[in-house]
Amino acid sequence: MKGSIYKVLGLLLVAYSLIYGLLTKVPELPIIEESIRNLFYHVSMWFAMVAMMAASFWNAIRFLGTEDLARDRRSISLAEMGMFFSFMGLFTGMVWAKYTWGAWWTNDPKLNGTAITILIYLAYFVLRNSMDDARKKARISAVYNIFAFVMMIVFIGILPRMTDSLHPGNGGNPGFNSYDLDNGLRMVFYPAVLGWIFVGTWIASLRYRLKALQE
């Protein structure tokens, strides 16, 4: 019972953000217009992805310290979940970009960061599949996971800040910080992030238990 609180809370928060996100009043901005609601669905995916990848990274570090294979199973389950969120974030972003910028894909630092992140973690999955011995696989992929996570943070967290971006809130484009006076957007956005992180953790824990049973 105690363990299911965050699951229920996660589902409620996701349901709240999905429904209330369509109903709430949003600031009227040029070009973005009603598509500003994508903040709730698109941006929360990235926050959830970074949280999943960070948890995976943490478990990889713990594995190298403890040599406990359960840590490795957690690490891969969380990385898989993070990958799912990154694909969802990519698709919601592409649909939005088509209607706001007029193209599915642009040469934008954030989009490049996404492409790199997906490539890095796909390489991580390929690496895992290329080895049989469980302990060796766990150790080598933990090394790659740690290195890859740091590179990903550099690429999506540091480099985009050094160049302009088309994204709202960058390079002189209006973001939700400057216009949103009554914090109405945040009231949906932060619950959405939290809800998706909870639901993601839940699904990852199911996958983790499934892997534990298979081995």
Partner: peptide, 20 residues
């Protein structure tokens, strides 16, 4: 090299990490 005998793997692992 620790995974034994998969020479293309090195490139797959390295290319995205080299981008920054």
């Amino acid at each position: 090299h620790r995974t034994r005998g998969n020479t293309t793997l090195g490139a797959i692992l390295a290319i995205p990490l080299l981008f920054p």
